[in-house]
């Protein structure tokens, strides 16, 4: 399936792309557009203005996708808190990882194109997921 989002991706779009590939559509292909009118026929837009998979009711797009596809894994919702704070920084959650992740992603966007950011952030989000999966299992920060 094709998925489209705005070019010049940052934390929310990078995290959404990871989420889509891992939990919604393993064959996902991503297209980056600079204008909503450029979204190809049949592609599902995300993290863009006026689309279903965008910001709604104070949620970032990552949270919207979790709700829309009924992903209830608590580890994914933990990542959602981090992505939400890195993206919106509204102190809805306590996510000390967020400012660091935000800076890392902003730095990457200065030296990489969108395709490359997805390549690099895939393992990063896999690792974050694994860390918080273990933390959830043992009920404290893993070593």
């Amino acid at each position: 399936m094709k998925w489209a989002t705005r070019a010049g991706i940052h934390i929310d779009r990078a995290a959404c792309a990871w989420l889509i590939r891992r939990h919604v559509d393993k064959e996902a292909e991503f297209v980056f557009v600079t204008d909503p009118a450029q979204v190809p026929e049949g592609a599902t837009p995300f993290d863009m203005r006026g689309v279903e998979l965008g910001h709604h009711g104070g949620d970032c797009s990552f949270e919207t996708i979790l709700r829309r596809y009924e992903l209830t894994d608590p580890v994914l919702w933990k990542l959602a808190e981090i992505v939400h704070e890195a993206d919106l920084d509204d102190e809805r959650y306590d996510a000390p990882e967020a400012p660091g992740l935000d800076v890392a992603l902003r730095g990457l966007s200065m030296i990489c194109d969108d395709e490359r950011i997805l390549e690099l952030t895939g393992p990063l989000f896999d690792g974050l997921y694994e860390y918080h999966r273990r933390a959830t299992l043992i009920g404290r920060d893993p070593a």
């Binding site: 010049g8 940052h10 203005r49 006026g50 965008g54 910001h55 709604h56 009711g57 104070g58």
Partner: peptide, 17 residues
């Protein structure tokens, strides 16, 4: 800049919603 524009765009959507 890309960031401020995006921030205001989401708020615009919020006002419309």
């Amino acid at each position: 800049d890309a960031r401020t524009r995006e921030q205001l765009e989401w708020i615009a959507d919020e006002a419309i919603e």
